[in-house]
Design a protein around this nucleic acid. Sequence first.
RNA 1: GACUCCAUAGCUCAGCUGGAUAGAGCAGCCGCCUUCUAAGCGGCAGGUCGGAGGUUCGAAUCCUCCUGGAGUCGCCA
Length: 584
Amino acid sequence: MNIFEIFQNHVAEAVSALGRDGVLPDTLDTKRIIVEPPRDPFHGDLATNAAMVLAKDAQIPPRSFAEKLIPRLLLIDGVLAADIAGPGFINIKLDPKIFHSVLHAVHQQGNDFGRSTSGKARNVNVEFVSANPTGPMHVGHGRGAVFGDALASLLIFAGYNVTREYYINDAGAQVDSLGRSAFLRYREALGEEIGAIPEGLYPGDYLVPVGKALADHYGSSLRDQSEAEWLPIIRQAAIDAMMEMIREDLAVLDIRHDVFFSERSLSQGGNRDEIGALITDMTARDLVYQGRLPPPKGAPVEDWEDREQTLFRASAYGDDVDRPLLKSDGSYTYFAADIAYHRSKYLRGFATMIDVWGADHGGYIKRMTSAVKAVTDGMGELDVKICQLVRLLRNGEQVKMSKRSGDFVTLREVVDEVGRDAVRFMMLYRKNDATLDFDLAKVIDQSKDNPVFYVQYAHARCASVLRQGHAAQSAFDLAVDAGALSKLTDASELAVIHRIAQFPRIVEAAASAHEPHRIAFYLHDLASDFHSLWNRGKDNPDLRFVIENDRNLTIARLALVDAVRRVLASGLSVLGVSAPNEMR
RNA sequence: GACUCCAUAGCUCAGCUGGAUAGAGCAGCCGCCUUCUAAGCGGCAGGUCGGAGGUUCGAAUCCUCCUGGAGUCGCCA
C-alpha cells in the first residue's frame, strides 16, 4: 500500500473530472502530477505540484488552478483539508485513519509490505563481480559484489524478474599467466626448487594447493610436455580452482549468481564462433568498417603503429572514437568479445542490462553502451554502475596491504574480522559512485556512530518490546483493525507511521534509480525515529508501549512497534543484512 | 590533450530524478538517561550547495564555461 501513489491517482482523477466538467481543459497530462511528502510536516501530510506543472497548459496561473482543484480534492475520502502554499503547492491534510490503515496494511502484508509490482515482471540482467579468475577477491571486489547483489534483491522486491550473472574472463592473456603460475606450483609440488615467482606471474600462495592437486592427479606426466600441450590443461584446472575459491568468497557474503558465463565459450567453447558471427552481422549492417585511428592521446604508447584495422562505428552511437574489434594477429579484442556477450544477454531476453564495474573501468562505459545500442537496434538498454574505490582503515589509519595472498587485502580477511552484516551494510551506506572509507574498528563498534549497529539494535529493541508486551498482556492478535489503531494519536507515533508509509515509494524510487543505498539511509532514519519514540517513554510514562491498565492502547502501540520491526526486517533483508532479535 | 566521476556545515555524507526556510551523523556547547535491553534521547550553534553565466513560475539538482581533486585512455583484461 503506497499512499502516495494512491493519492497521486486521486489527484489525477480530480483533474480529469474537472476536465470533463469543462472547468479545466480536458487535454492536461496528468502523468506529470507528483504527490510526495512535504519537506516540513507542518505543511501537511501530502503535497502535490499538480497546479504548478499543469498551469501553463491550462493557461491560468498556478494559484487559480489550485483554487479550482481544491474543492474537488476535498471530496476525496480521507482528505481533511487542502491549502494553497507558496507559488501554487497544494498541501493536503489527511485523516489519521489513512495512516492507521497503513499500519493495518503492514500487518496484513507482513514482510511483503513495500513489495512493489512497478517492475512489471520485466527481465533484468544484473552482471556483477566478474572478477578475473586469477586469485581471491579483494575488498574492492567486495563492494561491487554487495552492491550488485543488493541491487538485484531490490529489483526483485520492486517486481522485476532478475538474473544475477557473472562473466568469467577466462580467455585472455591473464589466464595464460595464471596457467603458467600454476605450472610452477605444479613443478614445486613435484619437488622442484622453483625460486622466486617471475615478474608477470601470480605469486600468491593460493596457487600452491592447485599445483599440489595437479601433481596428485597427473603425477609428473605434464612436466616434460611442451607448453602448448600442458597450458590448456593446467589453465583450465587453475581457472576452475580460482572460480571455486571466488564462489566460496561470495558465499561468505551470502551471494550466489544464477549464471556464470564464460568468455571462452563465446569463441572456443562450442561449435559456433559467437564473436565471428557478431562481426559478420555487424559488417552486414554497416556497423563495422576498415579504417585507421589517430594515435592514442595522453601517455605515449611505445609500440603504436598506424595501420588499417577493423573498427566498430562507436562514435556514431555516442562514443568518442571508433573502436577496434580485431588485434593485429587477427584474434578478437576483449571489446569484441564483450559486445558478443552483451548481445547474448539481449538474445536471452534481457532488454534491460545492468553492469556493475570497478572504478578503473569508467572509461569503458561509453563504448559499451554505444555497442549495446548498435547491436540491439536501440531496443536494449545498458546501465553501467561504477563502484568507486574502498579505502580500508583501522581507527582512521590506512590498512597496509597484506602479503599473504599476493599484494592486497582479501575480502575473506575482512569478513572474518568484522562479519558479513557489517561489510554488507557499510558497502551500501554510500552512493556507489562515491569513494568509501571502511573502518574495521568502527563497523563493529556498538554505538550509534555505527549505522549497522544502530539499525540492527532498533530491530532488536522492537523484538524486545514485543516480548515484554506478550509477557505483560495475555495473548493477543496484533492484526487489529484500523479502528482499534485509532488509539495512536500522539505526534511522535504518527511521525513513525508517516515514515513507514514512505517505505513503498522509497523502494520504487531506489529500484528505478538502481540505487540500493537509499534503502540503507531510509532504514537509518526509521531506526532513529523509533529510538526517539522509545525514549519518549522515559520522560512521559504515558507514552510507553506497554500500559498496564489499558489493553487496547497497548495492543495498538505494539502493533506500531511490530510494523517498525517488519519494515526494518524487510529492508534489511533487501540489503542482505540480518535482523537480530537481540544484540547480546 | 580528451573523457568519466566527485566538489553541500569544522569532519563524513544524504538530498526522494526541477519544488517551499538545503538535511542527518560525528566533533563543539547545554540539558536528560537507577527505563520496555545500557550501548542512548532532546536542544543550541554551524551553509554564498567550488565559481560565473544560462534554461523557467522555481535550480544543490538540467545546460555551457572556469577552478580544484580522483580515475581512465591502448590491439591490456
